[in-house]
Design a protein around this nucleic acid. Sequence first.
DNA 1: AATTTTCTTGACCGGTTGGTCAGGCTGTGG
DNA 2: CCACAGCCTGACCAACCGGTCAAGAAAATT
Lengths: 209, 209
Amino acid sequence: MTDLPRSQRRTEIRQHNETLILQAAEKVFAEAGFGGATMQLIADMAGLPKANLHYYFPTKEDLYRRVVQDIFEIWLHAADSMDQAPGPIEGIGAYIEAKMDISRRHPNGSKVWAFEVMHRAPVIQDYLETTLRVWTTGRVRLIERWIAEGKMGPVDPEHLLYMLWATTQHYADFGHQIETLNAGPLSDADWQKATDSVKSMILRGIGAF
Amino acid sequence: MTDLPRSQRRTEIRQHNETLILQAAEKVFAEAGFGGATMQLIADMAGLPKANLHYYFPTKEDLYRRVVQDIFEIWLHAADSMDQAPGPIEGIGAYIEAKMDISRRHPNGSKVWAFEVMHRAPVIQDYLETTLRVWTTGRVRLIERWIAEGKMGPVDPEHLLYMLWATTQHYADFGHQIETLNAGPLSDADWQKATDSVKSMILRGIGAF
DNA sequence: AATTTTCTTGACCGGTTGGTCAGGCTGTGG
DNA sequence: CCACAGCCTGACCAACCGGTCAAGAAAATT
């Protein structure tokens, strides 16, 4: 840590401030959307002058793009658990757990993604058409294989994926609604119960036993 | 139509223009969020001068509030099918069909609602705490009754409701993502398949047979 | 110590936004 | 024909926004 090459030492300040800005930006973009967010508000929340933001991120859109990309990376990573599973009980079960965990820990990221997609994805349309499509077709084949092997019922793989995304992300995107109905934030036990409920209903729904 | 009292003839123009504005507003708010939407854009889309909007809706927030309220009414209405059903197969099945139909016909309304909730519901928080809460507890009791009568498995009623909302609204809120993966808009057959998939997975998931 | 690169920031600017308003228009009632 | 209430709208404004820039502080390199 103390003896890094010059070029890496330089980037220490940069990385520190970038993450500071990105954290503030994620929150503001999530709570106000792209149009409603202001650079001034992000700057205040990050504790930096506004002009400093433009030093690290030339435009508002650059900053926004980074926030969206970061979330996308986290989600792609969450799918690793699904891959080398022997069947849907372990694979889809682990995927649900991973995504519920992300909804709890990165609710703002999930919201920013939702905003972006609802806006017809002006910034990450290419991601949808390339990376996400490749990812999806891969898991569709995996599910089809499980069906062929009799490990689960003959459900439509794509709609199963949509259901997985919808149910898990709902706990982040509509967290405020859930908390209002729940008369307060969800406790550890609440989250566990939510995860168990989603898991059992979906696994039973696809006939995986 | 030709011989109405004066006071009603007057309100005809008013109602016509209000719906014109509300339709445009729903679309613009859905595609840009509250902060990103501009009164000028709504006016252009409605084919009216901007000043005319402020004649009918004094502020941007008033207009926005009306849009959100209208959607909420539609959703509440959709739940009627669930009430006088003999069991979950008919009740929840009909509810899913009704909500999928709304997702198809009012995708923008669904998005505006999602925006509002993600913003921590600054405008309709009271609705969440009163009307929605009452509605929810009523359906929770209905589901609990079905469970007690052995008509479905012992699932958690609240998380079942969340799953119903999440899966059905996902086809509206994330319609762009689905269309991208589908390489084009969903056809009649696609929507039917989606509805059937959701219905069969959820009904099986809750053990309703 | 000198120099060069990176970082910081207050002040500023053109453009846009929500909202206002005075004056004109329209059609209905007397 | 007049009067009047509701409807319409071009022009305008203060506030705010994203982004720029020059000048300097701090840090790294020589």
